Amino acid sequence: MGRMILLIAVGIFAYLAWQKFKSSAPQQRRKLLLQWMLIGLALAAVLLAVSGRLHWVAAAIALVLPVLGRALSWLGRHLPWLAPLIARHAQAKREQANGQQQTSDADKAPPLTPAEARRILGVDEDAGRDEIVSAHRKLIQKLHPDRGGNDYLASRINAAKELLLRNL
């Protein structure tokens, strides 16, 4: 009885999916097909988990994944019509890696001016070495990352001290 209900539900699901697919615009069909396939795979995984057969699927996936990279390169060499797809995928990975590298470079703080450094440490223009070191020590004790501060503030305080000591 349970299998019959499941079969009817799958039939209704397939019918509704087909009607939606037929009525959609040609540009949206690929996206819709991918979406329905992912939903179908998720449902199949749930059914396999409920029936206690998921461990076979997990083992098959674990076996296939390491081989997939080599298989794609082999397919790219022996089936030339697949080569553009593989090249496009590799290019997208490179662009993504470059984008992440550029964002990490953008996170760096701008260079300090002497006026900003004095303002950060809270010292006057005519402050001597001892006063700069003392102000740095007080601030870094409060704002060090090990004491609840963060790396950014500590690096700015250290940069301010280095700049002012260099300009003495």
Rank of each mutant, 00 (worst) to 15 (best):
A109E: 14
R94K: 15
R119K: 05
W81V: 12
A90R: 15
P111Q: 00
A83T: 00
A87P: 01
L72V: 14
A62L: 15
Q91T: 15
P110L: 00
N98D: 12
W81L: 05
L75S: 12
R94A: 05
G99N: 10
P66K: 05
V64R: 01
L85I: 13
H89V: 14
H78R: 13
S73T: 03
P66N: 03
A71C: 09
L75G: 04
D107G: 11
A71H: 01
S104G: 11
L79A: 11
V64Q: 03
R94G: 10
Q101C: 09
Q101A: 15
L65T: 01
W81I: 11
R77Q: 07
A87L: 04
L63C: 04
K108F: 05
I120W: 06
I86G: 06
K108P: 02
V67N: 04
V64E: 07
R94D: 12
P80I: 06
A71V: 08
Q100H: 10
L121Q: 00
K108S: 13
A71P: 00
A117T: 10
N98P: 02
A106C: 13
A97K: 02
A109S: 03
A90W: 15
L72N: 03
I86K: 11
H78C: 00
L63S: 08
L65S: 00
R70T: 00
S73Y: 08
P110K: 06
N98H: 10
T103E: 08
L68P: 02
R77S: 08
N98G: 11
R77W: 01
P84S: 06
R77F: 02
S73N: 08
A83S: 00
P84N: 10
A83V: 07
Q96S: 11
P114K: 09
I120L: 15
A87C: 06
A115E: 12
V67P: 07
V67K: 14
R94L: 12
R70Q: 07
W74Y: 15
Q100V: 13
L112N: 00
H89Y: 14
G99R: 09
A97N: 05
L112P: 07
S73F: 05
R119T: 14
Q96W: 15
L75K: 06
L112Y: 05
R119I: 12
I120Q: 09
Q91H: 13
P111V: 09
D107C: 03
V64Y: 08
W81S: 11
P111M: 02
A106V: 10
Q100G: 04
L79H: 06
P110T: 00
R70A: 02
D105Y: 01
S104C: 10
L75N: 05
N98M: 12
I61T: 02
V67W: 04
P84K: 13
A109G: 05
A97L: 00
L121V: 11
A71E: 14
V67Q: 12
W81Q: 13
L85R: 14
L68T: 14
A115F: 04
P84G: 09
R119S: 04
T103G: 02
A90I: 15
L75D: 03
